[in-house]
Amino acid sequence: MKIRLSHADGRPLYVQIMDAVRSGLVRGSLRPEEPLPSVRDLSSSLRVNPRTVSQAYAELERDGVVEVLHGKGTFVAPGVRPEERERPRLAREVARRALADASRNGLALADLITALREVEDGDPHGDGSKEDGR
């Protein structure tokens, strides 16, 4: 599980950890019943307070994403269906950030949607000229 925390990010650190677990599930790098790093190891590698990691794991447990087996560690819950819940949820989070970024730049939702389609279609300038095939 790869996690990079950013302090410039508006999300609290524990939320960033939760989102990293969710994105691991969506990308398939983390699967049901697989173990998460121990609180000690993850806090050590992220240089964060262990309570921040515990808080993230506790919230994920409340959401049914992980389960804490006492004496064994934290595992992805067996019944997790990333496609049904985590994927739309993560998409909304990414959308929320994109919207905030757009609004900061004085753009409206419509500008953003149009530009997203154009960029996706390989038409980054919006004038029908495709990016030269490299």
Binding site: V39, R40, S43, S44, S45, L46, R47, V48, N49, P50, R51
Partner: peptide
């Protein structure tokens, strides 16, 4: 950096 990692583990 190592010190921060040591402190995190110490707190855990």
């Amino acid at each position: 950096d190592e010190t921060l990692s040591i402190l995190s583990e110490h707190l855990a």
